[in-house]
Design a protein around this nucleic acid. Structure first.
Length: 507
RNA sequence: GGAGCGUUCGACUAAGGGUUAGGUCACCUCCCUUUCACGGAGGUAAUACGGGUUCGAAUCCCGUACGCUCUACCA
């Protein structure tokens, strides 16, 4: 029985993988795993002019980071390879010939220049039944002319012959019944002059050969679905055709339209899953990973963009997503991407993630910030103290750098307006009292000592706490002051107080 | 221009003929906190418009508007 669920993600390796692409992978993956099926990665590299070095590896790296590992791929192999369309050229040629033989396709000898000229002359030109006969192809030309042209190796393409009148009807899992009158679609090129198939031919042939049971793709493909359905009918029979689902688009946060790389740059958020550097321009586009997202959070918010399980639950592990996923609950309408909400998901996942694991994930970020960490156990402790105020992994740097080194800048401007001689005296005395302490006092002892000293100087503790905080961390942020002192310990505390006192009196 | 698809708070969405149209993010207020957060309690805020069908419509039907996608020898 051929009822096994097999789905594929079929990107073209032309650059970084963006949100919409990853979500398509995700829905494929969730659907496959939910049904105990297989998830295949197929590389659609039939356009040699758009080939980009490293893009395929990038896709695989991204899938790895996300934890969406294919069961079959160019790397893993599988029973239905090759999984790169450029390596399947001969297969497509064969099916294109079959279509010609059956009269469902024809040779076209028009040059790109011919077509351009025609488009100039005829407004809204379509290569269809209305204009087919005006063009240079095996329908308009005589048999002998055609064989002559072929014999001379005249560059040519193969086009599908769209029937004059036919209604194509199919059921989309998300949208229900969709109907097209094929008279509005043109005779799409199936095989290009270089012998490579276009998407239209390749997707149908490969989905058949790879026994794909369900085909999911972005909504932008809906208008060309009739071409694919016609090809299924001509080549393999509609009963073998996979079930289709056209996924809603991910839109720009403001205005409307498909989310693009440009929007991210303009609005200051990532669009690609991971950093992508264009080999020709050397430009690097920042990714969610490097921006400080946890893959679990990335996957989680992507899943919630256009889908929900019907309850109020929003935080899902991948296992929970697999268990709950149902394509029929996917929205029809596009969803605007909201970076703030994405960060909220990440924050929730940071809170959920064990400090030891966070420490490991954070190490590269600290390395990059050139913050030296001498003891992992100290890092883990610090993480526990600041994690509630971090939306991104990169936030840990700004939120905790003062635990590892004295702050480089002290916001004295925030202290100065209410600064006075008796406070100066107090902090000098505080430093002195620290010098007389031994061991490693805990926060509560430190606080008690501080309050006693404040009372003897006749200053309210509240007037001293903020200056002390700024002296220690550089600004108005961070965990409890005495917890910080306990962590950075007495000698460092004294140094920071004395340094700040110098700054304050110097002004 | 044509074809297809879509439309519930600012955003993501719930409600599949009967709810004061619910939740989350964001925003605002208060509490907690002698910082910033976390947490807690409240608040502002939506069924695109017009017709039907029905005792009853966000929900079903029709029309309009608006938006989006496609309309390449790109995917």
């Amino acid at each position: 029985m051929d009822s096994k669920v097999r789905v594929r993600f079929a990107p073209s390796p032309t650059g970084g993988l963006h949100l919409g692409g990853v979500r398509t992978v995700l829905f494929n993956y969730l659907f496959a795993k939910h049904h105990g099926g297989e998830f295949i990665l197929r590389i659609e590299d039939t356009d040699q002019t758009r080939f980009v070095e490293g893009a395929e590896q990038y896709i695989i790296d991204t899938l790895n980071w996300c934890g969406l590992i294919p069961d079959e791929s160019p790397l893993h192999g599988g029973a239905y390879g090759p999984y790169r369309q450029s390596e399947r050229k001969a297969i497509y040629t064969q099916y294109a010939s079959t279509l010609i033989e059956k009269g469902f396709a024809y040779y076209a000898f028009d040059t790109p220049e011919d077509l351009e000229e025609k488009r100039k002359q005829v407004p809204n030109f379509q290569y269809n039944r209305a204009h087919r006969m005006e063009m240079k192809n095996s329908i308009s030309l005589s048999e002998s002319e055609v064989s002559e042209l072929l014999k001379k190796n005249t560059p040519h393409v193969i086009r599908i012959k769209i029937p004059d009148e036919e209604e194509v009807v199919f059921t989309d899992i998300i949208r229900g019944e969709v109907r097209f009158d094929v008279s509005t679609v043109d005779d799409k090129v199936l095989l290009k002059a270089d012998g490579m198939p276009t998407y239209h031919l390749a997707v149908v042939v490969d989905d058949y050969l790879m026994k794909i049971s369900h085909a999911f793709r972005g909504e932008e493909w809906l208008p060309s679905a009739p071409v694919h359905i016609l090809l299924w009918k001509y080549l393999f029979g509609l009963d073998k055709m996979p079930k289709w689902a056209h996924l809603p688009l991910i839109l720009k946060p403001e205005g409307s339209g498909k989310l693009s790389k440009r929007d991210g740059e303009r609005l200051g958020f990532p669009v690609f899953a991971m950093d992508w550097s264009d080999p020709s321009t050397k430009e690097t586009t920042v990714g969610f990973k490097e921006k400080g997202f946890l893959p679990e959070a990335f996957i989680n918010f992507l899943a919630m963009l256009g889908w929900n399980d019907g309850s109020d639950k929003e935080i899902f592990t991948i296992e929970e997503l697999i268990a709950a996923f149902d394509l029929e609950r996917v929205h029809k309408g596009g969803a605007k991407f909201d970076y703030e909400k994405a960060k909220w998901f990440n924050q929730e996942w940071i809170k959920k993630t064990d400090n030891t694991i966070l420490a490991e994930l954070l190490q590269p970020f600290f390395d990059q910030a050139k913050i030296e960490i001498h003891e992992r156990s100290y890092l883990i402790k610090v993480i526990g103290m600041v994690k509630d105020r971090c939306h991104l992994l990169t936030d840990f740097i700004s939120q905790s750098s003062f635990f590892f080194a004295a702050p480089t800048t002290i916001d004295t401007a925030a202290i100065l307006p209410k600064w006075e001689e008796k406070k100066h005296a107090f902090f000098a005395a505080l430093a002195q009292s620290f010098k007389e302490m031994s061991g490693k006092p805990v926060a509560a002892e430190l606080e008690a000592n501080f309050k006693t000293l404040a009372a003897s100087h006749e200053i309210k503790p509240g007037d001293l706490l903020l200056p002390l905080r700024i002296m220690l961390v550089g600004g108005k942020f961070g965990p409890g002051v005495f917890d910080i002192i306990e962590a950075i310990e007495i000698p460092d505390t004294i140094k920071r107080i004395e340094h700040s006192l110098q700054l304050l009196s110097g002004k």
